[in-house]
Design a protein around this nucleic acid. Structure first.
Lengths: 136, 136
DNA sequence: TATAAAAGGACAAAAATAGTCTTGAAGGTG
DNA sequence: CACCTTCAAGACTATTTTTGTCCTTTTATA
């Protein structure tokens, strides 16, 4: 329960790979996919999403490829996860008005709200730069 | 992402219904299902799990039905959720040895560990008794 | 123009979720 | 005992989500 899907894992692995590259270096999707052991076409989709959101920048044609769209220290784990998994949402109830007619008189609601904000807070506080650091 | 399934929602609704019953009163699965608006056969499965774990006690035959297996104040939301959804597990990595060969040198790992323990802590601190209280 | 790459869309397979149905077992009642 | 009531258990089915694949188009470079 409450689990990241494979897509989420792949996304994290992929962007960490980019973050570990020397400044200014671009990487082909084929290279990234091979390096982080993810089906290339699947990873390509994920990186398309990244690109649309500006998390990575992409260039086509010879010499093209992907690089981070901004410094790794400015990309949070939350962003990466939410791009592919959607908003962190422990329960439908939290979707908003109308989605849970019970919301008004539902004591469980505030619990999920708390869960959500705690998880968001944790993931917001982790940057890709930290995750990319090689340490032991 | 990170979401409760319908089964989880149903489980919570169902056990709260039980908790709101007067002491010692038993409820038929048909009654509960109608009251909380859940397919009866599906809810029956959920309650079978509850019974196996002792969260509810069940009796067959005329006059049978379900009641809480212990005081609502002694049943945590975490227990209820985990019975039907399995352990709270934001990432496969946390499953244990061998499940993630990256674990040893993976900086993301501790983040999921933190998420897990935070969520568990929240859900452990909420009892069904609290959830069953009618207030406004 | 030919080639290299990402973008985008349609499709397909597999797994998880959500739910049904049928039969069996246990317990009461006349 | 015969019969009815209720939960238990397992097999089955349908739907949705996840996890991919493949093919065509667009953009860029040489």
């Amino acid at each position: 329960m409450m689990g990241l899907t494979r897509k989420g894992e792949y996304a994290i692995r992929g962007i960490i790979y980019l973050a570990r590259l020397p400044q200014g270096k671009v990487a082909l999707i084929s290279e990234i996919a091979a390096a982080v052991d993810v089906p290339q076409a699947f990873l390509a989709k994920i990186f398309q999403n990244f690109a649309k959101l500006g998390l990575v920048s992409s260039a086509r044609g010879t010499g093209g490829g992907f690089m981070l769209g901004r410094p790794a220290a400015k990309i949070t784990l939350r962003e990466v996860v939410e791009v592919v998994e959607g908003p962190i949402m422990p329960n439908r109830c939290l979707l908003g008005v109308g989605s849970c007619d019970r919301a008004a008189h539902c004591n469980v609601h505030p619990v999920w709200q708390k869960v959500q904000s705690q998880v968001v807070a944790i993931l917001d506080n982790v940057t890709i730069e930290e995750l990319a650091r090689e340490e032991r």
